[in-house]
């Protein structure tokens, strides 16, 4: 597939997404084109983080054992998410920072707090979040002594 540059199917997946949902509903394993030549699926990264791969200073490695597949993206490489002109690649937008550590521009998971519609958004990367908390960063829901929020945070 890579030698022959046959990537039609990757776009077919996105086409089917729009046809079914009216927009590209793929949120992870979202295909990217590397250096204008190779298409890869950077699973399990959420598409929110796709733009961070572009010109990244880090060497990035992606492995999928079951598919016997490994991708290595060298530092400072062009990585562009596939899209359509009239359905451009978009990442999720979050109105507020992480409720626990206050981090912005990170991918947040929605956590349901009760059955009355209460919810909060916290870092998807929990390691990173705890690390930040340990370094004194705090989100709006961390310090408050509300019992249900503490339960959910634990």
């Amino acid at each position: 597939m890579h030698a022959l540059e046959e990537y039609g199917l990757m776009h077919v997946k996105l086409y089917e997404d729009i046809a079914r949902n009216g927009h590209i509903a793929t949120t992870y394993a979202y295909p990217v084109k590397v250096e204008g030549r190779y298409v890869m699926d950077p699973s399990p990264t959420p598409k929110f983080d796709n733009p961070k791969m572009h010109m990244s200073e880090a060497l990035q490695l992606f492995g999928a054992g079951r598919e016997k597949r490994i991708y290595a993206v060298p530092p400072y490489t062009e990585v562009v998410s596939l899209d359509f002109e009239d359905h451009p690649f978009e990442i999720q937008k979050f109105d507020k920072p992480c409720a626990l550590c206050g981090a912005e521009s990170v991918y947040l998971d929605e956590v349901v707090l009760d059955d009355k519609g209460g919810r909060m958004f916290v870092c998807s990367d929990t390691d990173h979040c705890e690390d930040r908390q340990a370094h004194g960063h705090a989100g709006p829901m961390l310090a408050r002594p509300k019992p249900e929020s503490q339960e959910a945070a634990e």
Partner: peptide, 27 residues
């Protein structure tokens, strides 16, 4: 054909393979 992909995508695939990137036009 790709039997598990919609009729529209079956036709659209070749357009996408030659670089067509406008969903509305492809459809």
């Amino acid at each position: 054909l790709r039997m598990t992909v919609s009729a529209g995508a079956n036709v659209g695939e070749r357009l996408m393979a030659v670089g067509d990137r406008h969903y509305g036009n492809i459809r």
